[in-house]
Design a protein around this nucleic acid. Sequence first.
DNA 1: CTCACGTTTAACCAAATAGTTAAACTATAA
DNA 2: TTATAGTTTAACTATTTGGTTAAACGTGAG
Lengths: 202, 202
Amino acid sequence: MPETTKEAIIKAAKEIFVSKGYAATRMQEIADAANINKAMLHYYYKSKETLFQEITSQTLELVFPRFAQALEHEGTVMEKIENIVNTYIETIRHHPYVPLFIITELSQKRTDFMVEIQKRMAGFPKLHLFLAQMEDEMKAGTIRKMPPMHLFLNVMSLCVFPFIAQPIYCTVAGISEHQYEAMMQQRADIVNDFIRKAIRPD
Amino acid sequence: MPETTKEAIIKAAKEIFVSKGYAATRMQEIADAANINKAMLHYYYKSKETLFQEITSQTLELVFPRFAQALEHEGTVMEKIENIVNTYIETIRHHPYVPLFIITELSQKRTDFMVEIQKRMAGFPKLHLFLAQMEDEMKAGTIRKMPPMHLFLNVMSLCVFPFIAQPIYCTVAGISEHQYEAMMQQRADIVNDFIRKAIRPD
DNA sequence: CTCACGTTTAACCAAATAGTTAAACTATAA
DNA sequence: TTATAGTTTAACTATTTGGTTAAACGTGAG
């Protein structure tokens, strides 16, 4: 089945916008990647901003619903964490450039992008409920005492950072992208083990 | 003491290049921030590339020597980790934009930047010696068994990610930059505790 | 066939941005 | 004081890049 022009544009634009960010992306580069004339981009999308908006929307949609859902899981703190870890790593493994894309664009403080992010955040279940549950379990002695915010940050760090840092990690460790992907396949189990041991009471 | 023009340029350029990246930075913006005419930039530095090179060099110099030194510390795996954690978090707390800067520019795959990074990596002590020591201690039963690469990645993740993710974390957790900085002050101790518990043998 | 409509192209324009130049300014040493 | 060298500025050019236009192309309906 031959790809429509619009599909080719979206595919190429997603590839390039997400991996290089808005500022570093050239419309010509997208046109080349989609094997079309640059004018076609403007035929289907009014401007670079418009096209970027479309890509942003599709990209965030790919990832945020799953992230939100992971936080809604029922159970103990450790069961919730396990679900978050599995969901995050699995999702990001399929879209490895997305976290850096989000962080890159957020750091530019482009208002339209920040609005888009905040819209998605609104659909998020309240984080502080999860933090409160952590405190309850810490008081009950089910898990070790530590600042709940830091525990949550630890979970995020262990899941997300490896994908953001892939290029530098491959350089410093002297391994290939392929070897790195192999590492990421076993990562969810390892992270869960790590956290389980770290938070169990003495 | 009145700042020299060159100092003003470097200060402004560092601020802007490091926080927004090469592609999103405008020479005019640097000139404005330094309160000088745009032509002055080209009087002191041949081109945007040249100025960027200078900023890159100074910025990496600020951070890489400390990172390298932290890996050279003597002692048990946990003692080494503790030193790495303390050094990394302390260093990055003073230069919070640097990690994202490095990752952003690396992801652009600009060859000159990658060369600059690899030069600094050359001065790094061999990571695999540290990994080998981990394996020794795991066999000896001093620390829990787990893939050494993942343990190292965990340490990096817990130290570096919070600074990269600051903008999105402040949004999702609904806290101010100031509150976030306060969190980062206590972070080194918390991360060390977390890792210590996670790697101790059962 | 041919008309009409959506699609595609080459050539072009306009705005933004990096980079240049020549003249003016300033401080300092002879 | 003035000659000199370094510094600064306004005005400019060149290049890159986002965006436009009018004409050409192709295809399905009548």
